[in-house]
Amino acid sequence: MKKNTEKTVNIWDRLRQSDGQSAVPTDQPWPKIWQGAEGLGQDFEPDVEAGLKRLKAKIHAMPVAGARIRRLTPLARWTRTLAAAVVAGLLGWGIYLLVQPATPVATWAEITTQAGEQKAVVLPDGSKIALNSASSLTYRTDMNEAAERQVQLIGEAYFEVERRPAQPFKITTRQAEVEVLGTSFNVRARAEETTTEVEVTQGKVAVHHLIRDEKVVLAAKEAVLVANDQPLVQETSPHLNRQAWRTGRITFRETPLEAALPLLEHYYNVTITWQKSAAPACSITGNWQNDSLTEVLQAIAAYTGITVKQLTADTYQLSGICK
């Protein structure tokens, strides 16, 4: 290629030495163009990667027609962030519900007694219950696994509760809730009555008035009367015959006959009628242990001087004047 260059230079020299009538302009850089073409015959390897980078840089630098840049306000950014958080929270809660084991549904069992019938019941936790006549007891069958041992009572029952400090035992009636850790007590909540009576034999219980939102703690040999809309009435000397249905003992101490007869009716499941004018001021005193109604009425007749007559198998009539 060097020879070609030398020839080119010689040609241009000859042209300059001519008579100035050359057809090729002498002010053009033809020698340089000729020299630049010197390497065209050699091997050429382009740098493709570098070329692509330069092309991309130029494309990004070019303005886009009609494009506008939107800047989010703080409120818009906060709204989008909150929406994303809510969606994430809902998804997380849904996954949590899917993986959580299903909560077992509590099952209840009911034990009832007919008029004149009594039953001894042992609950799943080992607590013992004497259920009086015409009563209903409902309890949770899974009480051993539950946080609270729950029962519902309509009627009357005597409880001997297994002590479990971490698992309270609760009895619910229409008027009250009785809570105990371990003790013995009697609860009376008859369907035909508007009161709940609680009497403690040993230990302590808490009685909550569900209607008036009052609460009292009872110790042994204490009782309380819970009426529908009345304040709690606490007794320090329990009723002599409140647990007669369970113990079989009936005790009267100068008790007005008018107050004694309803207890006898309930205890023996009978009806006793009498004329109040026939015995305006009768009172009775005596103790009976597992005696028949006939024996009790005969003793009352001998004590007061009144007459007792049996009308039917379960109906009695009192008449006469007390002596």
Rank of each mutant, 00 (worst) to 15 (best):
L261G: 02
V187C: 04
K215Y: 05
S22P: 04
T196A: 07
D13I: 08
I250T: 01
H208C: 01
W93F: 11
V308Q: 03
S237Q: 12
M143L: 10
A50I: 06
R71Y: 15
E214F: 05
S135P: 04
S292E: 11
T273S: 12
I95H: 10
N290S: 12
I129E: 00
K276G: 07
E160I: 00
A102V: 14
A191S: 09
R140K: 12
Q100G: 05
R149K: 11
V121Y: 03
A147E: 12
V86G: 09
V308P: 13
Y158D: 00
G320H: 04
Q298L: 13
P256C: 09
K309A: 14
S184D: 04
A301V: 06
Q152L: 09
E110A: 11
Y139M: 08
G94L: 13
A279M: 11
G39R: 06
T73S: 15
I69Y: 13
E162T: 12
K56L: 14
R190D: 08
L72T: 11
V86H: 05
H209Q: 06
V24S: 03
L137A: 04
D27C: 04
V9M: 07
N4A: 12
P262N: 11
D125V: 02
Y268E: 10
L210V: 06
T112W: 01
Q152N: 09
L123E: 01
P238E: 03
L137D: 00
H239E: 08
P104S: 07
R70A: 14
D213N: 13
Q17F: 02
A223G: 15
A84P: 05
N269W: 00
K128S: 09
V224S: 00
I33N: 12
T194G: 05
T307Q: 14
P46H: 08
R71F: 15
I171R: 00
K221L: 10
Q175H: 06
A84H: 06
N186L: 11
I11E: 01
Q317K: 15
A76F: 13
E6C: 04
V87I: 15
V86A: 12
L40P: 02
D314S: 14
A147W: 05
W34H: 09
E258K: 12
R16W: 06
A302E: 15
A37F: 13
S18K: 03
L261I: 15
A23M: 07
N269F: 01
L293I: 15
I321Y: 03
A115T: 13
N287Q: 12
G66C: 07
